[in-house]
């Protein structure tokens, strides 16, 4: 194929994409099409409407708490602005919400609810965890842990877990949305009392049929998990966790719930 004709097609396609994601309906920006006037605008609107509707429906599934917090109308506005500001990079809608939490943090009209972005991070973590690989920890990992110097080992967190530290009580807010009888004045109190929460999210044993669980970590456990996620050695992570962290109880729960992918040689950074 000649380079010139390929360029013609590429430019034609670029112009249609630009017209679809343009902030205003700009038929002038549209490439030459057979249709004109209102019929051309209707055609452009159909493509925009379709792309946006697909993205919005996916975002609703991926951010149920944000949807419940904003309400349908505001969520639609947010979805439409997000779609335009950060057009999808992939054809797989499972990833369409990847940048929504960061985008929410930039939206001025949401400033009064500064926890929204972190709540969106928690929604996204739950969505990701629901489709993550099962844990890979084996007996051999445990035997290695019993036999080798733990200063030279680190624990790998499983893909079906996630932790989200926040300056806001995001777990309290999240759980209130699961509770029809939630007392919103208590939730507001939790916000005003200050103090953030670290959310810990996992899908038990990575089982496809299991529901994803979300809890708030105690401070010591939050420090422990953060250290593991940072790739610390087990001894280093225990030092980071400090007093009040029950390693034996955590490990028992970790194996029962499937929080670990295994043991790796500690590689200091």
């Amino acid at each position: 194929m000649s380079a010139a004709t390929h360029t013609t097609e590429l430019e034609r396609q670029q112009r249609l994409i630009a017209a679809i994601f343009a902030p205003q309906m700009e038929p002038a920006a549209c490439p030459d099409v057979l249709q004109d006037g209102a019929r051309r605008e209707a055609g452009l609107a159909a493509y925009r409407g379709n792309g946006l509707a697909h993205a919005r429906n996916a975002l609703r599934a991926q951010f149920p708490t944000v949807l419940a917090m904003l309400g349908n109308d505001a969520f639609d506005v947010l979805s439409a602005r997000y779609w335009r500001a950060r057009p999808p990079r992939r054809g797989d809608l499972a990833w369409v919400g990847e940048e929504l939490p960061a985008y929410i943090a930039t939206v001025d009209s949401l400033d009064a609810w500064p926890w929204l972005a972190d709540c969106a991070r928690l929604d996204w973590a739950i969505w990701q965890t629901a489709g993550a690989a099962p844990p890979r920890m084996t007996h051999a990992d445990l035997q290695r842990l019993a036999a080798e110097d733990p200063a030279g080992l680190s624990l790998r967190l499983a893909g079906c877990t996630a932790y989200i530290p926040s300056a806001w009580p995001i777990v309290t807010i999240h759980l209130a949305h699961q509770d029809e009888a939630a007392d919103w004045s208590m939730v507001r109190q939790a916000i005003l009392d200050g103090g953030g929460q670290t959310a810990w999210v996992w899908r038990p044993q990575g089982d496809a049929a299991a529901e994803v669980r979300t809890i708030a970590l105690e401070d010591a456990a939050a420090r422990w998990v953060a250290a593991l996620a940072a790739g610390e050695s087990i001894v280093g992570a225990l030092d980071a966790a400090g007093e009040g962290f029950d390693f034996a109880a955590w490990m028992q729960k970790a194996l029962a719930e499937g929080w670990l992918d295994g043991v790796a040689a500690f590689a200091p950074r």
Binding site: M1, S2, T5, H6, T8, E9, L10, R12, Q13, Q14, L16, I17, A18, I20, F21, Y47, N50, G51, L52, H54, A55, R86, P87, P88, R89, R90, G91, L93, V96
Partner: peptide, 29 residues
């Protein structure tokens, strides 16, 4: 088609089935 370069963002995906021209170049692509 659905993918095309879009400014600084790089290649974006329109999330819909956009029309192609029935030209030799399109057929090659």
């Amino acid at each position: 088609f659905a993918r095309a370069p879009w400014g600084q963002r790089g290649i974006v995906h329109a999330g819909d089935l956009l029309p192609i021209a029935y030209t030799h170049a399109s057929l090659d692509i």
